[in-house]
Design a binder for these strands. Structure first.
Lengths: 215, 215, 215, 215
DNA sequence: TATGAATGAGGATTCATTCAT
DNA sequence: CATGAATGAATCCTCATTCAT
């Protein structure tokens, strides 16, 4: 409960407040339409204070987005261990996590921001691709490969196109981003259906015979 | 005060040029960062001229996006007829069309724009949802339903969650939007894999035996 | 009497007004303390209008100063013809012109501006040195040389240090710049005294005998 | 509110350091463009510390400039004694001192600062005029007068316009300020030539006959 | 005394919009 | 219809000054 981490290692409280405020503003307005005034006000500081922590609006954007991406990276790392057990269970686990921890939370707004501002901040895109997306894709790829080796999955091109596996989750995120106010989607239902289709689509012909043995 | 320039139905050439120019600029810069100067210059007209056709930057945005959506609506209508033949063939046809006519072309940029600017232009979102998305979803839904009736597809919740079917295509579009410069994807390969997984995932257990009888 | 030179060759009226306003402001405030608002107001235009003519405050400064220097250049050129008659008369003529046309007028303020802002605008300094100062120095140098050839002036190092000849005039300008409100100087008196000292200082020993013959 | 830091007469070390740092910054940037941050950093203190010694940026400027002027005043006082010996020698001595101790040193930068910032700090100008310039002028004036009495100099208006005597030195300083990087001047050569012209210009007609007697 | 984080007024610059021609 | 010069509100950023520690 020791609050007062304003020293070094732990970025100062102010720093965090400004980043939080900035992300809110950027989420709601996009980069160009976001106003430094509004960010400062949200953070409860004066305009000039923001510039004590970030050199410019662009630096603030990059810094804030990066710091939001960091915890995601850690999450991905956790998934990157050697797979054991049923490939389908592992896949299920990952997708459910993605649906519940990303799509169903505020984190999906990061996706919108990256789509919107990517061209203006290519290095953030590169960073995100390298640290998050490539690793996530790699995890799925390994998992499919593992499932095939295990005889659980058919041999398909899904090893080379993992997006054919998890794409519907991304689409669910996009739908929610676009239409949450107009026509919200039942993410749980989508998740289950998504898993149903994909696991059946991957299942090796004999799999059905084997699965009973699993019990 | 927007005096519809002269004639009736046939929008003037100028009108079209301005819209084309505006879309280019909006695609590249987003709404907030797009400059009227640049749009006018692209269209080869003076800045003031744009205001003879559109009341404001926002009206221009709405008008331009709407006019880009119109042809898409027509495309959708075509798909909305009674299905005949193999449901899997129809699904394949639709997805291939989406991959080749939307994702692989400039049209995917519309998706980015809607994602980016949606919150600022909710009525465009409503319009797009009603005229395009809802119809497209309905088409897929009917198709799945048709496949099930035909005994070609399993009974799944995909009728209620069509995104589980075509979602990977959306994801492919998003990937391309984000990473076309960093790590481009083979859209043909994805399309094939996507179809492979989904059609297998939907296929009714006996389906394989029935298909030969079709001949 | 054709007024309306807003076309090409003759810089538009607006252009001139802005430059005039800018010079007033820069004279009074210096570059850093000058405010674009004030310049625009002086020129009777809106703030944004200034940016239709100049890209930035710095560009405005350079442009304005350059355009003030231009007429000076023409003046210098006029002096650069072959000398005829008494060298002392020519020298007198030049110095009197300098005192009455530069030091006693608003033009002396240019000197202050160049002294103040020189380090920030080195290329203006180079321009001014090349187009004005070097030429002026060269004129004096030639004149002294001419006087020596003519036997009117002693042989002195003044050919290599023309500033020893006209320096007091510069000093008079500096004095006026600094102390016009505190302890103004009688520029006519200074001019006469300056000429008296310098012409006597240059005069060849026999000169006094020759001058009567001149009549 | 400026609490004179502790002790009495002996300005603290800090005080001196801040003034030195301030002068450097003011010399390089001028008043308006100088930044308190930079001054504090140069002085090796925190920004707030400067305000313990000076009430404002303007007070700092005045204080710093004044303290730079002080030693000059003392120098001037020394010259203000009764003249003895050859007036020309005395004049030579003064001018050489000015060339070598002022123009050829960092002190000439004070001249630039006074020219640049004079209008903004009229009381500094008054102070400088009263304590330095007026006295220096007076010294020259007395000297010329002394030379005339002595029969060494002609009777000229130079008594009323001493600038006609030493002006070229000022001009040399201005030249150096403006063009030291572009076209530096040989100050020694100028000094000699200056003296040559001026002493000859002042010399009484018979002076030449008298000088040998000096030996 | 000394610090330096915080403040916020001030100023350069941009750009959607207007309007006289 | 078309122009493009002019406008001025909006916004980023700077920096002198303050003040809690």
């Amino acid at each position: 409960m020791n609050r007062q981490p304003s020293q070094d290692g732990a970025k100062s409280e102010r720093h965090r407040e400004i980043i939080a405020a900035a992300m809110q503003e950027f989420y709601e307005q996009g980069f160009a339409a976001a106003r430094l005034d509004a960010i400062a006000e949200r953070a409860g500081v004066a305009k000039g204070t923001v510039y004590l922590y970030f050199d410019s609006k662009e630096a603030l954007f990059e810094g804030a987005v990066r710091s939001v991406i960091l915890p995601v990276i850690e999450h991905i790392e956790i998934l990157a261990h050697e797979p054991t057990g049923l490939a389908s269970d592992l896949l299920k686990q990952i997708l459910v996590t993605f649906y519940t921890q990303v799509i169903a939370t505020d984190r999906r707004r990061l996706l919108r921001l990256l789509i919107s501002e990517g061209p203006r901040f290519p290095n953030i895109l590169v960073f995100y691709h390298r640290e998050v997306v490539a690793k996530a894709v790699s995890v799925i790829r390994s998992l499919v490969s593992y499932g095939v080796q295990r005889g659980e999955f058919r041999t398909t091109a899904a090893v080379d196109f993992p997006m054919a596996i998890f794409g519907a989750a991304i689409a669910g995120a996009v739908w929610t981003i676009l239409f949450e106010d107009i026509d919200p989607i039942d993410l749980n239902g989508l998740c289950e259906t998504h898993l149903d289709i994909v696991l059946n689509g991957l299942k090796a012909p004999m799999a059905e015979l084997q699965t009973p043995q699993r019990i």
